[in-house]
Structure formats: structure tokens, C-alpha cells
Simulated scan of single mutants.
Amino acid sequence: MTWNSFHRRGEILRTVIATADRRRDGLLPMDVDGVAQTFGDELSLLGALQLRWHTRLAGRIERELMHQPMELESAVVAAWHATSDELPGIRAIIDHYRHEPLDDAMAAMMTKSAAKEHILLAVMAGRVSAQDATAARVGESIEHTARATYRPIRPAAEPTGHGLLDRIRAALAA
């Protein structure tokens, strides 16, 4: 991958995420300009979105654990909530395709991805030390707790101006 194609891919992924956040319908925005040329198919785009979710969640967990080092599970749940607020479109897409994959390859990818996320939650919450099926079940329980206690923030109003401050806000949101 060339430097230009790397940056183009990042730019398109940011546009996809912004579109998903705006729509929040759980469907992959394959209609965004450049998606088909850059990612090829739904599976590749979904993989890129899952990677974005997973890395953001892992980073958020680390930050929460710095603030709540004695309340590991609470910190993990808070991190899941915060990540869901930051990436609502991606969360909706992952949830949709986890329950309604397009084909067997996507179903396998979603199953493996869910298990990896559950293991991350369980290990970081201090509930398990091994990364196995038990850890995945414990992490799934933590995810259920996070979902049950999640209260999404309302989407921010679209900026109406085109001044410097509005452009800075838009850049920070992306």
C-alpha cells in the first residue's frame, strides 16, 4: 500500500464512520464514494470498522483503569459505554451483522470478533487470566451488563456555521 492509498483509505474510513454515525441504521454504508474501490466488499469494510471499534475500546479501557484502578469491572463497563457513545454507528453496524451476517464468512468473522472482544472485557476486568472459552463467556456477561446499563447520549446538533471554530470542532469530531 502506498502512502497516498493509505491516507485515502483513512479518509474514506472516516467518511464511512461519519455516515454510519449519522444514519445509525446498522447497515454498512457501501454507497459512500470510494468505498467499493478502497475496501472491495462488505467483509473488508466490516473488518476495518471492527478494528476501529476494538482499538478504541481497548484504549478507552486503559484510560478508565487509570481513573478507577480498584474498580476494574466498573471501569470496563464505563469504557464500553464511552466507546459506544463515541462510535454509535460502528456499534450499530457490529450489532446488526453479528445477528444478521450476509454469508458464512461474515458469520465466522463476527463470531471470532465477538469472542475476542469478550475476552478483552473479561481480562481487563480482572475476572479471568486465561484467554479461553470461559473468558469469552465471562466477557459476554460483562457486555450484557454494559448493554443493560447503557444510556446513550443524544447526538450533537449539526454545526450550522462555517467559521474557524466550527471547522475545528468538525476536525476534532472526525
Rank of each mutant, 00 (worst) to 15 (best):
A156K: 06
L43C: 04
Q50P: 00
H96P: 02
A48Q: 09
I12L: 07
A148F: 09
H81C: 09
L46Y: 10
R56A: 15
M110E: 08
L46M: 08
I17S: 00
T149L: 10
I12E: 01
K112V: 11
L165F: 03
L172N: 01
H118S: 07
R22C: 02
V32E: 03
A114R: 15
V76F: 14
P29D: 00
I17P: 03
M124K: 13
A157Y: 00
A82E: 11
T19V: 05
L72I: 01
L13C: 05
M70F: 09
G161L: 02
R56P: 04
I153H: 14
F39A: 04
W80F: 15
E73T: 09
A105F: 05
G163N: 02
I17N: 00
E71M: 06
F6I: 05
E117Q: 15
A135H: 09
Y150H: 14
L65M: 03
R91Q: 14
L49T: 03
A78G: 06
H81W: 15
D104Q: 12
D85N: 15
G59K: 04
L120A: 05
T134W: 07
R63E: 13
T134P: 00
L65K: 03
I142M: 05
G34M: 06
G163S: 02
A122D: 06
Q131N: 02
D33F: 04
G59A: 06
R9W: 01
G40D: 06
R8F: 05
S74M: 03
R151Q: 14
R22F: 08
Q50N: 13
G126E: 08
A115M: 08
P152L: 10
V138Q: 01
P101E: 12
E42W: 10
A107D: 10
G161R: 01
A135L: 05
R98T: 11
A107E: 14
T134D: 14
L13G: 08
I93N: 11
L46P: 13
R98N: 10
T134V: 07
A156C: 04
I153M: 13
R24F: 02
D25A: 00
L102Q: 14
L57D: 11
M1T: 05
A125H: 01
A75M: 02
V76H: 14
T15D: 13
P101V: 08
V35I: 02
R8E: 08
R9E: 09
E100L: 07
A122P: 01
A157T: 05
E64N: 10
A130E: 15
A148T: 11
A114Q: 14
E117A: 11
E140H: 12
T38F: 06
M30I: 08
L120Q: 10
V77D: 04
L46H: 10
H81K: 10
L49V: 04
H118G: 01
H54R: 15
E11H: 07
Q131F: 07
R154F: 06
I12W: 08
A20E: 03
F6K: 11
A133F: 02
R24S: 02
R147D: 11
A36Y: 03
A170Q: 12
L57V: 11
V16R: 00
H54Y: 15
S129W: 15
M1S: 06
P155R: 03
E86Y: 11
D25T: 01
A36T: 07
L43E: 12
L165N: 01
D25E: 01
A79Q: 05
A114T: 11
R9L: 02
Q37M: 05
E100W: 08
E73G: 00
T145V: 07
M106V: 07
E64S: 13
A135D: 04
H118K: 00
A48E: 13
L43S: 09
